[in-house]
Amino acid sequence: MNKHDLAPDVQRLIHSSIPSVEALEVLILLVSSDGEVWSPDEVAAALRPSSAAVEMVRPYLALLASDGLLKITTRQDGAHFGYAPTTPAMAEAVRQLVMAYHEQPVLLIRTVYAIADRQKLQAFVDAFKIRKDP
């Protein structure tokens, strides 16, 4: 591993579950709250003023939950989300991600942008495919 690159597991995690820096902030917040559950409104309020709107937070929470990083608890006032990785490998990748967030924030944010960029280019390539991947 090049010291100018993040670990492959962390890169895979970013590729699958972290489409933007805001999504990264959401995940870091939930991980550092140590299993506590949050409503989308609470997450948006806690991230203010950097990430703000709850409409923006909601899809990230849904994505992270569908990728098995968050657990959804339904309460009377709606769905709440708490950090609960489904596999030990996932937990390890997140641990490394949090470490990178504290120790190499510039590299991490650059990587998030670079991967998001690559996904946009991939969308261009996919536009030429007659049948889309399932």
Binding site: D117, R118, L121, Q122, F124, V125, F128
Partner: peptide, 11 residues
Amino acid sequence: RFWRKTGQALF
């Protein structure tokens, strides 16, 4: 540049 970034032969 896109090819070097993604390795996609199409680019």
